[in-house]
Amino acid sequence: MPDGAPLRTAAAAAPLAVEGLTVRYDGRPALSGVTWRAAPGLTAILGPNGAGKSTLLKAALGLVPAEGEARFFGQPLEAVRARVAYLPQRASVDWSFPASALDVVAMARLPRARWFGALPRREREAARAALAAVGLADLAERQIGRLSGGQQQRVFLARALAQEAELFLMDEPLAAVDAVTEETILAVLHGLVREGKSVLMVHHDLSLVQAHFDHVLILAGRLVAAGPVAEAFTDSAIAAAFGGLPGRGRGA
């Protein structure tokens, strides 16, 4: 994208486009002037700890104060909220909360129901279907604190799926999960992309990037590189972002 092109008139509106996105925590910049258009498909957001990966997602969603602009499908978030799903970091909530897996997933259906009283049965059924899609149909009634870490992560994925969105912003869904969960999540992600949906995913494991992702956005407090994996996921970009640490190889 040529710098400064007006985001709103872009031909096919990008699922997410940010311009000059800057976030400060206590005055210290966590993210400086990021201008980027996400491409459709599966994008990995990479970078070392503190690179501003989660911050980028939160700023785009208006969850942290930010300067700059974020547009979803060419529009402000308020206009297209129903088309955008969010999967926060698993550690951001208290899993001893008195709720079943189904209760948590059903929260995704709240905007579709009236704001008071009980959730209609069809919405609970939609939540149940989302749980089944991540292989947790049998654990729908279990208290979330009694699920394994990987199962909890899949509950969060099911909740994002139940939002039935077109763009999914995911904050490290593959962090510290078991093999079954990783396999399930990757299969779900590829299924979403086949349906024409887009996923922007904060991600740590560089070894998975080439096999599974279409695009990368590499951050280190600012934009280091972005584009198709073949072009942007280069040794020099990784070295620039991760400070040239040896042993962070791209793998196969």
């Binding site: 926060p88 951001s92 208290d94």
Partner: peptide
Amino acid sequence: CFDEGFARAQGL
């Protein structure tokens, strides 16, 4: 109460 970030992202 369970997840403020998600609630806000949903527009609650």
